[in-house]
Nucleic acid binder design. Sequence first.
DNA 1: ATCATAGTCGTCTGCCTGACGATAAACAGC
DNA 2: GCTGTTTATCGTCAGGCAGACGACTATGAT
Lengths: 258, 258
Amino acid sequence: MITLMPPYDPSAFPPFAVTVDLVVLTVRKHALCALVVRRGEAPFQGKWALPGGFVRENEDLSTAAARELTEETGLCAHTPEAPATANGAHLEQLATYGDPDRDPRMRVVSVAHLALAPDLPAPRAGGDARHARWSPVEELLGTTAGGRRTELPAEPLAFDHGTILGDGVERARSKIEYSSLATAFCPPEFTVGELRRVYEAVWGVVLDPRNFHRKVTGTPGFLVPTGGTTTRQGGRPAQLFRAGGATLLNPPMLRPEV
Amino acid sequence: MITLMPPYDPSAFPPFAVTVDLVVLTVRKHALCALVVRRGEAPFQGKWALPGGFVRENEDLSTAAARELTEETGLCAHTPEAPATANGAHLEQLATYGDPDRDPRMRVVSVAHLALAPDLPAPRAGGDARHARWSPVEELLGTTAGGRRTELPAEPLAFDHGTILGDGVERARSKIEYSSLATAFCPPEFTVGELRRVYEAVWGVVLDPRNFHRKVTGTPGFLVPTGGTTTRQGGRPAQLFRAGGATLLNPPMLRPEV
DNA sequence: ATCATAGTCGTCTGCCTGACGATAAACAGC
DNA sequence: GCTGTTTATCGTCAGGCAGACGACTATGAT
């Protein structure tokens, strides 16, 4: 049976613009960094902001986020549906921000997404390095590496993007505890030491290499050895691993207190 | 300095309707139940759906969710900002669903919220019990109590609300592991046994009363004794507790395997 | 050759958990 | 009043895991 179905009365609800904003995180030089772009127009002209853009007609939210990610970084998104590709990043929905006053121009609801990527050569936003860069999240948020607030950030992000970035960083910090997501910050093949440095950078702590090694190699499905070794970190050659199939770590990695 | 700021060009982006949908969960008769309402109009006329509605002009997303919650249940929302009130429920944002085809009438983006409430007298949606009711989530989702899929649900929910409900239930199941959120299912004063039955209902498992008692009373800040006792469950009188200030449980409650 | 750097394997101790025995305090029925 | 049933609460014990840390290995730099 086909039911006659009138479209919504446009006067029955206020119109919204819907955007996706991206919190793209990576680990560079032992620090957790986020991708920010320089705004070219008002409001907040000249300020740094999170990359993002409008959701298109006939485009899903995750599709829009993946498109923006590719446009800004050249990365392909790893979604739970799509298998891992070469130059890929983890992408998941973070939260939605819809304060009526968050954009002074009109009512904009932004569906923020979180992307975790391995260290990349250099950001490209139209190829202009002045318009996009990786910044340590401590600088952007005005926090210590552990996440505790110190002072206000020197250069606050545009709009409510500081809040969004903070939520994304907090999600990443907690999620690597109980999932294998930290491998998303690593290249396809990596060593236990490189993975440990990811945890140390994201959490802002120092971990015992011996206990860490025991933990990650002893968790079934977390890491699979590739057979190769590398000395790119100096010192004794280390075994190379790939991320195993396991996504949930049970029992979880424990973040040291204080 | 005041910068001239043109409004967005309305032709630059497609118009969206933004709604909030609610996954309201409670524990009744040893089963995890969700609030569903009967749809009065096409599409999906006569089907059960999650409560929800349009976000109003000048209304924040969390405000809209709290308003819908009060309209449907009479509950007040406990947000991290607002302190606990008498007839309150926990409310948090769940996720946002924006598939272009999720509503056949037009492009609708729905910001789903999750509410956890103690057992209530009876739902009221305009006072008509035929239009709102509590249904066990196993029936709505076609799963066993543990969460494993069995068969398709007898009466699938409208739109993508089955997906949203499943995500909300999964969020609740995992969140009571590492937070004190299970107390949101309990009245202001409750016993250890009542709290244990919440965990058993949400997880669909049977827990050892002695180990559970040791765990929850031994976690600092989880429970504070009120001094009173009750025998409303029968048997030996049990101590009454209130939820303590702690929100994160460290170490977490462990959900039994299999 | 020596040192510095990183990786890997073991040991020990303390804490937490799961399994489960035992006791306590109410109520129902005889 | 006595007995059985129900629920709450306290204890005990063994196994597993994490933190602290010693010891050894394999590379490159000086």
